[in-house]
């Protein structure tokens, strides 16, 4: 680069690198093998057996149906924090696999391959683990027969508090100390289930039936100008 294009070359490299790096970093991240092998503190375990048939997935245990020819594509429900061990049993002589993706439809951009491929010999068994971690709707399917062998997984929240983090039920808030009067604390705001959290605007915290506020229910928060007064050294 004896010429004068050095700066332009550098600028082009910079712009390209920024585009590649930003695009890569914020792109959806597939769940890695490592996190599936060692799930952190699995709360529950579950075993699910699925019969693989080109006409649809089938679970005899759940539906009392041992006839693999009747496709059901069952909807599977798990509690969040469950390590699910899938057992897939071949019924027809066709190749199958088992993929799971978040969302209501098949998604080849970000999926987890529970069972990559099975040997098309009827009766052969394959197992794979999947960690049902985040609550939500998932889709499981066979990529060889994506239109027929597709079903839904619901991962339900482990406890209600983990979803509505910031809703304080009035029964939960008991008076502290012997002399304090009964207090009802209600926080009025919409809960956005999607991100499990919603903003509490500062004037939504209202204390009811509290004798400490003579003028009844009202706004009671420390104004930002007075915050420094609470500092202890």
């Amino acid at each position: 680069m004896n010429g004068s294009k050095g700066g332009v070359a550098f600028a082009v490299i910079v712009v390209l690198s920024i585009a590649v790096a930003v695009g890569f970093v914020i792109s959806p991240q597939p769940t890695s093998v490592l996190s599936q092998v060692i799930p952190p503190n699995p709360a529950y375990t579950n075993s699910t057996t699925l019969y693989a048939n080109a006409a649809g997935w089938d679970t005899p245990t759940q539906y009392g149906n041992t006839n693999a020819a009747i496709p059901v594509n069952p909807t599977l429900n798990y509690t969040a924090g469950t390590v699910v061990t899938f057992t897939v049993i071949e019924t027809d002589s066709l190749p199958h696999n088992l993929y799971i993706a978040k969302g209501t439809s098949e998604n080849l951009a970000a999926y987890y391959s529970v069972i990559g491929a099975i040997n098309p010999i009827p009766g052969s068994k394959y197992t794979g683990e999947w960690y049902a971690q985040t609550p939500g709707v998932y889709t499981y399917w066979c990529q060889v027969h994506p239109t027929t062998m597709v079903g839904t997984i619901n991962v339900l929240p482990a406890n209600s508090t983990s979803i509505s983090n910031n809703v304080v039920k009035s029964t939960e808030l008991a008076p502290v100390g012997v002399h304090s009067p009964a207090i009802q604390l209600s926080i009025s705001h919409a809960v956005n289930i999607q991100d499990g959290f919603s903003a509490i605007s500062h004037n939504s915290l209202v204390l009811n039936n509290c004798p400490c506020f003579a003028d009844g229910p009202g706004i009671n928060w420390i104004p930002i100008e007075q915050i420094a007064t609470g500092i202890r050294i």
Binding site: T161, S162, N165, N166, V168, E172, L173, A174, P175, V176, G177, H179, S180, I183, L185, I187
Partner: peptide, 20 residues
Amino acid sequence: WDWAFTNYTGNTTYDAFTVQ
């Protein structure tokens, strides 16, 4: 991701607590 506050009576509140 929450804070659990348990007072001496065994009542637990999440992300909020009351003191005198």
